[in-house]
Design a binder for these strands. Structure first.
Lengths: 228, 228
DNA sequence: ATTAATCTAATTGTAATACAAATAGAATTA
DNA sequence: TAATTCTATTTGTATTACAATTAGATTAAT
């Protein structure tokens, strides 16, 4: 795409690489509902011709979209829009601050304090049962092998809010948190269970304030353990 | 990089494109502290040779990193790691769910409820003054042109927590929210000011619970306005 | 000496082409 | 009908060439 006199004005305004422009145009296909999540995109060759760019440019755009988790490419098959919001970029960002444990722990706490208030509003019997199940499994666990159920308790709460934006964020944060938790020396199973039960009771009452309070107590305790 | 017999095992394991591998290796430069935010990367040519890949592959990786907001490229100058965590990928993700107003509003509320509790713990006199300033400006505003100060109030709270992870998330969310707010018909300046004052007082007392409660009241009110 | 204008070479940006690798689906065979 | 082989499509990688931009050097003007 050589520059000629006619480009003068527009190129002064946009100041973006072709790859970036292509990236936006592909995203626009989603936003404008021309294509939907899960749909297959035309092959590179067609898109190149359609948008009037070279293959490297098209591939740069596609690779970016893939690293954003917006599309998924399969050799010989094709390129597809992903079904749901990806937490990939989020995880990448978190890996960049993995040394800043305090920031990750705070972010997790912040998000989950908000989440639990919504969870209280939206709580269902099924979710309550699932939560209770994790508590029982924790009680029955031997040694300190209850991390899995601990994590599940929090994920179920996040999931129950049924919000794709929050879901993507908290998933990555909880995952980072697991790694951090692994370094805790003295775990306190009984206290954790007591906290989870308190949260459970507040959610059962569908009381946002109480749920916040219970989660606040719990996460402050976790924070204390994690940050020495 | 042609495949030969020696690659057999490793290539079975990794299953990633070269561009993705290069992307990770560049990121590793940051994680391992070999390079720091703001640092200049070697030119493409050098990196190609260093990592043994072709230019298109290197450029795909770089374009991805740029769309993640991790690097910034300048023609003739070079490529630099960005200084701080970018909210670019969040903004992109949010644009994909821009039709799901409820999800965005909920995410904003969730995050800010958590933020404000930390803000209460960390509150300083300077921040309090800055917050009060926005309230005064709102009171002095004519008509309904107080959106700017309203936004600033919330941004100052977010900023005061001084957490790069949370900062990136809330920035994008508040920006999305501004667009949503613009569609509110009847604005209620007096009530908004009253709410902000209540939040301010709670923060002044450094009382996380009270701050949460005040913010909860405020955001539930905002939610009500936004979601019809 | 200072500023302004010009030049130039380093770096990123775009394109064209060729071939390799993987594999969904068709064709073939058992 | 099921297993196998083939094939052609699509993505993955490499090479080469040139265009566009502009930081910094150079030169010219004041």
């Amino acid at each position: 795409m050589k520059k000629d006199a006619l480009d003068l004005i527009s190129s002064q305004v946009v100041r973006k690489t072709l790859a970036q422009q292509v990236e936006e145009q592909i995203i626009d296909l989603l936003i404008s509902n021309k294509l939907k999540p899960g749909d297959k995109l035309p092959p590179e060759m067609e898109l190149m011709e359609l948008l009037g760019v070279s293959r490297p440019v098209m591939r740069e755009a596609m690779t970016s979209l893939e690293s954003l988790g917006i599309v998924k490419r399969k050799t010989r098959d094709g390129t597809y829009f992903t079904e749901s919001i990806s937490n990939k970029p989020f995880s990448t960002m978190l890996s960049l601050v993995s040394d800043n444990i305090e920031a990750i722990v705070e972010a997790r706490t912040s998000l989950e304090l908000g989440l639990v208030t919504y969870a209280a509003e939206k709580m269902t019997d099924e979710t309550l049962e699932a939560l209770n199940d994790t508590i029982i499994k924790m009680e029955n666990s031997v040694d300190n092998e209850y991390g899995e159920h601990d994590l599940m308790f929090h994920r179920i709460i996040a999931l129950s809010v049924n919000n794709p934006v929050l879901q993507g964020m908290i998933d990555s944060l909880l995952l980072s948190h697991v790694k951090i938790n692994a370094q805790i020396k003295y775990r306190e199973k009984e206290k954790t269970i007591r906290h989870h039960k308190a949260i459970y009771e507040a959610l059962k009452k569908k009381d946002p304030q109480a749920a916040f309070q219970a989660m606040y107590n719990h996460l402050k305790f976790v924070e204390g353990k994690v940050l020495e």
